[in-house]
Design a protein around this nucleic acid. Sequence first.
DNA 1: CGATTTAGCTGAAACGATTCAGTGCGGTCG
DNA 2: CGACCGCACTGAATCGTTTCAGCTAAATCG
Lengths: 365, 365
Amino acid sequence: MKVNTDPPKRRATLKDIATELGVATATVSNAYNRPDQLSPALRERIFEVAARLGYAGPDPMARGLRRGQSGAIGIVHRERLSYAFSDPAASLFLQGIAREVEAGGQGLLLVSRPPGQEPELAAINSAAVDGFVVHCLTADDPLLQAVLRRQLPTVLVDQPGFDDLPYVMIDDSGGARAAAQHVLDLGHRRLGVLAFRLTPDATAGIADRQRQEATTNVVALARLRGYDAALRAVGLDWHEHVTVYECLEHTPAAGRLAAAALLAAHPRPTALLAMSDQLALGVLEYAAQAGLAVPAQLSVVGFDDTPAAALASPALTTVYQPHVDKGRWAGRLLLARLRGEPSPGAVSLPTRLVVRESTAAVPGV
Amino acid sequence: MKVNTDPPKRRATLKDIATELGVATATVSNAYNRPDQLSPALRERIFEVAARLGYAGPDPMARGLRRGQSGAIGIVHRERLSYAFSDPAASLFLQGIAREVEAGGQGLLLVSRPPGQEPELAAINSAAVDGFVVHCLTADDPLLQAVLRRQLPTVLVDQPGFDDLPYVMIDDSGGARAAAQHVLDLGHRRLGVLAFRLTPDATAGIADRQRQEATTNVVALARLRGYDAALRAVGLDWHEHVTVYECLEHTPAAGRLAAAALLAAHPRPTALLAMSDQLALGVLEYAAQAGLAVPAQLSVVGFDDTPAAALASPALTTVYQPHVDKGRWAGRLLLARLRGEPSPGAVSLPTRLVVRESTAAVPGV
DNA sequence: CGATTTAGCTGAAACGATTCAGTGCGGTCG
DNA sequence: CGACCGCACTGAATCGTTTCAGCTAAATCG
């Protein structure tokens, strides 16, 4: 199929077609947008000329400007762009959003976070979208601030209400509590926690009491509280029994580092609770390499229940969270706002402990 | 941080700020785009008023219209939108693109393929992007046609030159040949192939000679040729020794179906060559459930070398292809075009057979 | 000191479409 | 037969920016 080559200079516009046919641009526009407003015959001729001139339909930008909408929804998160495809949990979440969004024919714009000074400004301010789904972890995150400034319909993820925006969350503290309770039930008393960054300006390492209390990351906070609740339930003091290591990245590599640090302590923790499977997998890697048998000598619990958790050896005990559903709800909430339909202002989804092979009774109990 | 609430009606524009300050809109525009064109003092005042009015910077759409660019690149592929996040090979590929694109601060627009009549038209024509990366499998694909009509810089993936567009491919036939040769070397003589759809209008099932010859899917074709080359090399006739099953989907479920059909034949194939790991994993599932020992009774070879291949049991013998690099090159080629920099017109990446545990000598040889 | 440059700002024309209030006009209704 | 209606189409305003060719006044030069 030849696509046309006649006017090598400028791209054809509505007006070109209009003048070519001696009709008004409004009519040509109608041919594309309101077929019922003109005679089928003329419409046919318009398309014919359009094809001949290599006109691919109304320019998205011009149409968007005039109509005030763009047909895409924006996804904003703290991590690098490629993280969307490399992190299993993020992928599942996005898959959920995609499912909802594709039905409406909207596109999904992943906004990037270039390394510059004010990264958020550039990319977020210039994203041509009808609304945002924001995944970030503190209310004062500049990313979130930039999104709010756009004053577009927005859905928050993993972060409770702010500026009365709708949001989707999971039962972080419940899941964490279940995880901790599980290892406590197995007799463990010295615990290590592999935590996310507790504040935006985190550095990797053991987080002391003061640091823990400074936590602004709402997800990390909820999970720490959940773990703590389980300790309290059996009358144990948090700071006496658990050490927290703050991880910067969200990868097995970071998990290995954390494991090394946590397991170097005396007395050594007998159970490690990770805030993500990626971190927990790193623990498994470290244990294997350090000759520590899991679960005989060390119990490990993850969070997320990503596919890799079940495939790991030993299979990882972890906390399931409905990533895909979380994405679907985020998509649904946003689409509902865009369409002006009523929708819940908040959705909270359950978590569930999945016991596999990486946890066992503490030796000698 | 309060974001402003004064004018609940309309969103502030450049002009609002301009009149508020008694300056020209051009000056306000310059404040954002050409800081050197006005005094720092005035610039400061402009930002101040902007903040007060809740102005988040120039409207992306208007700016895009005027400037003729949008700051995003579009990804088009044949599958559903969510496939980008659910298929491991696709994810890796997109991860590669993302890596390249994020550095430039561009966004990534995944264009969806709504279920309607002329799906491509709607979404592709209205995507506000500066260029496209297209992953499709036949030159006459309406998707590709629609993209071409847009006359934007475009990079093709897995599909060789068309309309002299730059493209990125892998050595499909070489990889396939290596896979087939591997099982032939092991003594296998009855082979089954789990192929992608050979033409757009495919139906699942055994593909007879005529159907095979009708193949328009360039990737499938190259791989079939590669398998064939290995057969020829040892003097075997293709149609006599191999059965091809055409799979519609790209999932383990489809692989199970295909395995069931191929293994029902008499004499039964002793080796199955799948065009993707997802399909091969389906074969493994089927074999396990049917009580067929792999590799003792059946050898299986995949394609892609996705992470799951190494984790499967038995670990899957497969053909490695550099998904991430493929994505990076696609991104690089497109960005180069957008910037008017010189770049290769075509990139072809190598494949490599990875022998694991799912292949073994044919019983009795 | 007059001529020339420069900084800082203005006015208005695009950019490519959509939309809304008409305008003729052939046909229908009572 | 006149009033009325709906069809098919037109004109012009508008969406929010960017950009380019000035323009003015102050600064610089010889």
